[in-house]
Design a protein around this nucleic acid. Structure first.
Lengths: 200, 200
DNA sequence: TCACTAGTCTTTACGACGTAAACATGGCAC
DNA sequence: GTGCCATGTTTACGTCGTAAAGACTAGTGA
C-alpha cells in the first residue's frame, strides 16, 4: 500500500512525530488515530509500533515536544521584553497564553487530557523547565525563593492558575463575551489581566 | 444477551445517563464507550441509539448534567456563607473548585474536551447559569454591572480564570508541590488564593 | 375489544481502529 | 561477504460506532 523509493524510511521516528502533530491539529485529540498517523507518513499501519510502543507512547512523545515548545515560547518572549522583573513576568505569561492560542491542540494534549504518561522523563524534564521559568520570574520580583515558604508558593500557584485559566478558557471559546473583539487589543488585554496577579 | 423482567426497560434514558456517568468516572473520557454504557445499563449495544443520536449527544447530555451540578454546588456554598459580598464570592469560587475536585471527570468533560456540543441549548442554559452566578458575585462587590464596561469584564475574566486555572491544575495533579499537604488546610488555602483576585 | 401504529429493544452487519504475530527487506558490524 | 537484527509489511483478532432490519409491546382509535 505505501509507495516509497526505499523499503526503509530512513527517519520514520521524526516523520511520525511530524505526522502525529498534523493529525492532532486536524482531527483533534478525539479523532487522533495511530493508523491515520501512519497513512500520513506513508507507511503501513503497523510500522509505528517499532518506534512507539502504543498510541499513548506516541502522544507522550508529542506532549514532550509541546512542553519544549511552550518553554521556548515563554523564554523567547521574556528575552525580547524590557529587563525589569515585572515586564519580564508579563511577557513570559503572555507567551504562555500565546502558545496556547497558537497550538490549542498541543496545549490541550499537554494539560487537558490524561492521555500522555505524565511520568515520562522527557515530558517531566520539559514541563519542569516551564515551571522553573515561572518560579524564576516570581523570584526576580519578590527577591526571594518563592518555593521556600507558603506565601511564596501561593504567589506561584496564583500566577500559574490565572495564566493557565485564561489560556484554557480562551481556547475553549468560553471568553468570547469578555475579551476584546480585535486581535490588536489582545496583547494589552492579556497584560492587564496578568498584572492583577503580580506579587508585590 | 441482556436479561430483564420486561422487554421494555421503562426508564432507559435516565438509566443511560447514570450508567454514562459511571462509565466516564471509571474509564475516563478516553476510555468512554457507548457499548460500555449499554452493558452497564443491561441493554443491547444498539439500544442507546433510540435515546441519544450518537456518542457525542450522550456526552452532551452528560455535560449538561455536569453544568447543572456545578451551578448547584456554587449556589449551595454561597448560601451557606456569611452574607457579605466578599465571603459569598469566596464561597462560590471555592465551590467551583470543590466541584472540580469531587467530579474531575465531569469537569474535564465540561471544559477540557471538545466532545460535547457546546451549542446544545440545555448545556448553554446550565453553563450560562454558572456564568451569571459569577457575574452576580462580582456585581455585589463592585456595586455595578461588571459586563457594562471593559474594566468590569476584566474583573470577571480574571476571577473566572484564576478559579478555573486552580481547578484545572489541581485536577491534572500539577500543583502537588504548591498546595498544602493536608486536606484540612485546603479550604483556607483556596480562600487565600481566590482573595488575590478579588476586585476592590 | 381488537387491530394497528409507533416507539422501544435486539440482532445482524460493516468498516475502522489498536495491537500482536508472522513474515520480508536490507543496513551494517564483523 | 555473510549473517544478524532493526525496520517495515501483511495478516489476524477483538472491540468500537453506527446503520438497517427484525422482535416485541404500550397505547390509540375504531
Amino acid at each position: 500500500m505505501p509507495s516509497r523509493a526505499t523499503y526503509h524510511h530512513g527517519d520514520l521516528h521524526r516523520a511520525l512525530l511530524v505526522a502525529a502533530e498534523a493529525e492532532l491539529i486536524e482531527k483533534g485529540i478525539e479523532g487522533f488515530t495511530l493508523r491515520g498517523v501512519a497513512r500520513r507518513a506513508g507507511v503501513s499501519h503497523a510500522a509505528p509500533a517499532h518506534h512507539f510502543k502504543d498510541t499513548a507512547a506516541m502522544l507522550t512523545a508529542l506532549a514532550a515536544v509541546a512542553a519544549k515548545r511552550l518553554t521556548e515560547t515563554t523564554t523567547r518572549r521574556r528575552e525580547a521584553a524590557p529587563h525589569d522583573p515585572r515586564s519580564r513576568f508579563l511577557a513570559s505569561g503572555a507567551g504562555y497564553i500565546d502558545f496556547a492560542l497558537e497550538n490549542p491542540a498541543l496545549f490541550m494534549l499537554l494539560f487537558g487530557s490524561g492521555r500522555p504518561d505524565s511520568d515520562d522523563p522527557e515530558l517531566v524534564r520539559h514541563a519542569g523547565a516551564a515551571f522553573t521559568d515561572l518560579v524564576d520570574r516570581i523570584a526576580a520580583i519578590t527577591g526571594k525563593d518563592p518555593l521556600a515558604d507558603a506565601e511564596g508558593r501561593l504567589d506561584v500557584a496564583a500566577a500559574w492558575s490565572l495564566v493557565h485559566g485564561v489560556a484554557s478558557l480562551l481556547i475553549a471559546g468560553r471568553m468570547k463575551s469578555l475579551r476584546p473583539t480585535t486581535d490588536a487589543d489582545r496583547d494589552a488585554w492579556l497584560r492587564r489581566l496578568i498584572e492583577r496577579i503580580l506579587p508585590d
